[in-house]
Design a protein around this nucleic acid. Structure first.
Lengths: 200, 200
DNA sequence: GTAAAAACTTAATCAAGTTCAATAAAAGAC
DNA sequence: GTCTTTTATTGAACTTGATTAAGTTTTTAC
């Protein structure tokens, strides 16, 4: 059994607030959105998506920290994306092509998500066309951020990337296991240990 | 003086064809699009955008090869994106925030682009709302491709990336200077020379 | 509260890729 | 066509980060 309705509704307001930062919503739009979006609590280490499944939804993080990762040829988990409050996480490739995903989406810590099912998303675009614009703008940001990240990878050494990340998100370092951060930043956990040792 | 109108119109059909692969356009929509999009021939090495300028348009490559690059702290050009036929190229970050760009967009070889001015794009979304959907879908692909690229960078060595790229785009190797490809793939021109030497 | 599992550390060795500098080849300019 | 500029090659010394493997600390499960 989930939490009572008024709590759910309260949390879902975060999503409405986020959409409202990009586009104008009428009260009717808001009601429509709330009526089709699902709420879910997710326990630490639970998966929203697993490799070889077809990704059926886009997930908006209401609370907590999630990650997208894959398993490389050596069997090691490689984190390709972190998502925290107010970010969407999904595998667009799998969702659009209806093809098996190569990714897992997992809760790094217990949290809450708003789920926008693929089919329902299409219906929502019919009912609230401005949502098409909202996702266009969100994707524009995501794309720019991904290119920016490639630039960081090319421009800075592993140590510089770690220092940059830890100065931008100091509280994050406490919340996620080091091996996840290491693969996100593009190096091994051993190397991250070395970096930390050097700073003392 | 540019080419005669019927030639321009012919080339612009590539854009209409591309949009039609993602969304349904009425004849009226097509006319509207063609009436607001500009056509431009661009000579090799000419720039569509320069560092510190505010990016005012999105460019659709009708013909040729373009690149987006920045100049790093050592004064070296670093190519972050290539765009060929049927791809859009722009700096979304600068365009959206109206902030000075850190990028140059340049013609690698003489080519042709369709220009969608930022202001005109907004008007176009009013007149042909389905264009909002078209760009959402294009951005979805761009974002997925950027994440995929991060994965390649992490997963494969420089040599593997070069081999993969040259098997995917063999004709490309002839068209672009090696130093541009080297920075796109994330290593130095010297290292690319060594890779090629090894293959003989 | 204790055992087991998961996460982190340390150190030695090795490989991938950079830097610098000098030379060679190719492309543009007049 | 020749001169100049741009682009590509080669090699030696160096740096960053991976790998392996053993040991330590922290977390989780019952």
């Amino acid at each position: 059994m989930g939490p009572p309705f008024f709590i759910v509704s309260l949390h879902m307001q975060r999503l409405i607030a986020h959409i409202s930062r990009f586009v104008d919503l009428t009260e009717e739009d808001k009601d429509t959105i709330l009526s089709v979006i699902q709420y879910q609590q997710v326990k630490k280490k639970d998966h929203l998506l697993r490799q070889d499944m077809i990704c059926n939804a886009n997930y908006f993080i209401l609370k907590g920290c999630f990650r997208r990762y894959y398993i490389d040829e050596k069997g090691t988990e490689q984190t390709i994306q972190f998502a925290i409050d107010n970010w969407w996480i999904t595998d667009y490739d799998s969702m659009e092509k209806r093809s098996p995903s190569s990714y897992f989406i997992q809760a790094v810590e217990t949290g809450e998500v708003a789920i926008l099912d693929k089919r329902i998303q299409e219906e929502l675009f019919q009912k609230v066309p401005v949502m098409e614009r909202y996702f266009r703008l969100v994707l524009q940001r995501s794309y720019a951020a991904a290119i920016q990240r490639i630039r960081y990878i090319y421009e800075f050494s592993g140590e510089e990337r770690y220092n940059h990340f830890s100065s931008l998100f100091p509280e994050f370092l406490q919340r996620i296991p080091q091996y996840m951060l290491a693969s996100y930043l593009g190096f091994t956990p051993e190397f991250l240990s070395k970096i930390r040792a050097k700073k003392n």
